[in-house]
């Protein structure tokens, strides 16, 4: 375990990048009235809990085309 803490400076940027991805997707999701598939609640869970792949799926197939 202490070895993991030793590598914390390497882990923080990774966690930050994942957060940036999730938060950008979440902001986009909340600002837009609807999504292509399913409903917004499902997408909120997908974006927040599926690491990396959740936001990607949202931006590639979930987002609505209205700007």
């Amino acid at each position: 375990m202490e070895k993991i803490i030793e590598y914390l400076p390497f882990l923080i940027p990774i966690i930050l990048l994942e957060l940036v991805l999730a938060v950008t997707a979440l902001i986009h999701l909340l600002k837009h009235p609807d999504v292509k598939f399913g409903n917004k609640t499902i997408w909120i869970f997908v974006v927040l809990f599926l690491q990396i792949i959740g936001p990607i799926l949202y931006f590639t197939i979930g987002r609505s085309d209205q700007s």
Partner: peptide, 19 residues
């Protein structure tokens, strides 16, 4: 946001793999 996704994902892979 396609550039953003590509960049972040590939940077993540770049950092995660050696770690």
């Amino acid at each position: 946001h396609k550039v953003l996704i590509l960049m972040i994902v590939f940077l993540l892979f770049g950092m995660m793999s050696p770690l």
